[in-house]
């Protein structure tokens, strides 16, 4: 397959670059819902919410947990995801992710009556860990 018919996808975080490859398509969760980007897409910038990025290459699907960020589609079938935090689904340790989720939920239950707790942050934590657990399970099923 010629390279210009493929998407060059880069998923990068401030800490490291998670993914860099030529793929057939990518599906991401944006604040407006899921979108799929194919090669030759028009330039686009859209914020991402906590969710997943699925890239399809040669019929195989690779999942990434995305902790919010920006999707930028450039000229020449280039896609850049700038994310706060991102992991490949196969890298997620499901037990630890579940533990972290439980911890966040417990904390939420405990602090239910206290006032000086940043609930927005807690909810975000929970959503994030939930997302990781889901993705890790998806990765294991295959």
């Amino acid at each position: 397959m010629s390279a210009n018919k493929q998407l060059h996808v880069v998923i990068t975080t401030p800490l490291r670059t998670v993914y860099d490859d030529y793929v057939d398509q990518i599906t991401v969760t944006t604040s407006e819902g899921e979108i799929t980007v194919l090669p030759e897409h028009i330039p686009l910038i859209v914020p991402l919410t906590i969710g997943q990025a699925m890239v399809k290459k040669d019929g195989k699907e690779v999942y990434h947990a995305i902790d919010g960020g920006i999707l930028e589609v450039r000229h020449g079938s280039e896609v850049v995801i700038l994310s706060d935090r991102s992991e490949n689904a196969s890298e997620i340790d499901i037990e630890r992710a579940e533990e972290a989720l439980k911890r966040a939920q417990d904390f939420m239950d405990q602090k239910h009556h206290e006032e000086d707790v940043d609930f927005a942050k807690l909810e975000r934590d929970i959503a994030r860990e939930l997302n990781r657990v889901k993705l890790a399970q998806k990765g294991q099923r295959k």
Binding site: P14, P43, L44, I70, R74, H75, L82
Partner: peptide, 29 residues
């Protein structure tokens, strides 16, 4: 040169609100 006219979804401000802190984060990191 590739100054493509980007399509913003849903709007420019929200994009900036996400990008600018991310850039600052990288700078300080």
């Amino acid at each position: 040169k590739s100054l493509a006219q980007y399509t913003f979804e849903p709007n420019e401000q929200e994009v900036l609100d996400t990008v600018v802190p991310a850039v600052l984060m990288t700078v300080i990191y």
